[in-house]
């Protein structure tokens, strides 16, 4: 079967620093992949490239069988157009570490705005959808609250509902529980676990919390210096790692 997400020989540099070097990666449709590893190892960059927040320097990124940055035209590759990016972004949704909710909109407006203005749904329909999603993440009573009045965990749940309202095929979670107080991690994790039941939804999750990996992952990938050092089911990678680097990383993480 065609993979949902595919990196072929991808290189990414920030100035002189090479973040990813001839990197290959695949995720199947509906697969839940958790990416772990030390900071600066390229995990977040991978997500940000899928969301088109970072460009690639070489190689090819495919989503759902279509090239993200370049359009194949026969044998030639053509520079990407706004229309193509718009088409590709519709397949992907993202949840950020710092929520990035729109502070000038209520929770309901945060979720309803993009369906209305990007997907062109009528206002009533967009708001009904938003309300349904917010109820689903347990925030049915916070529809008219502004982000500043919500706790971190509540804000992050709004952010998840906001991304889901666009009906993406791939959801990216970039350290979504890292900025939360420990007692608020559970409520966000519950929402993510509920999402992971959807069989067709591909989820790529970057995290430092092994609990998240254990709860959600079909597969865990350990990253270091822009390469996957070790991967497999969580019980193998987390509980019985083979590679020395993975072992020392996990020891360090458990201490915190």
């Amino acid at each position: 079967m065609m993979p949902m997400v595919r990196f072929e020989n991808v290189t990414k540099r920030f100035g002189a620093t090479v973040v990813l070097d001839a990197f290959d990666f695949e995720a199947a449709r509906g697969e839940k992949v958790v990416l772990i590893g030390p900071s600066g190892s390229g995990k977040s960059t991978l997500l940000r490239m899928l969301m088109t927040l970072e460009r690639i320097d070489a190689g090819m990124v495919m989503i759902d069988g279509e090239a993200l940055w370049y359009v194949r035209d026969g044998a030639d590759v053509e520079p990407v157009t706004q229309a193509h990016l718009h088409h590709m972004r519709a397949k992907v949704g993202m949840v950020f570490q710092h929520f990035n909710l729109f502070p000038h909109m209520t929770a309901l407006q945060n979720v309803a705005n993009a369906p209305r203005h990007v997907l062109g749904k009528p206002k009533a329909e967009a708001e009904a959808l938003a309300e349904m999603l917010l109820r689903k993440v347990g925030l049915g009573d916070k529809l008219s609250s502004y982000p500043a009045r919500l706790s971190g965990g509540q804000q992050q749940r709004v952010a998840i509902a906001r991304a889901m309202a666009m009906e993406p095929k791939v959801m990216l979670f970039d350290e979504v529980t890292s900025a939360l107080d420990p007692e608020l991690v559970g409520e966000v994790l519950d929402v993510m676990r509920a999402l992971s039941v959807e069989r067709d939804l591909t989820m790529l999750i970057v995290t430092h919390q092994m609990g998240v990996a254990r709860a959600l992952a079909d597969r865990v990938c350990f990253f270091e210096k822009g390469a996957i050092v070790e991967q497999g089911p969580p019980e193998q990678v987390i509980d019985d790692p083979v590679h020395a680097r993975t072992q020392s990383f996990l020891r360090a993480v458990r201490l915190t």
Binding site: M51, T52, L53, H86, M94, N100, A114, V118, A163
Partner: peptide, 8 residues
């Protein structure tokens, strides 16, 4: 970035 992610 959030606006890009929501395809505005």
């Amino acid at each position: 970035e959030a606006a890009i992610a929501l395809n505005y």
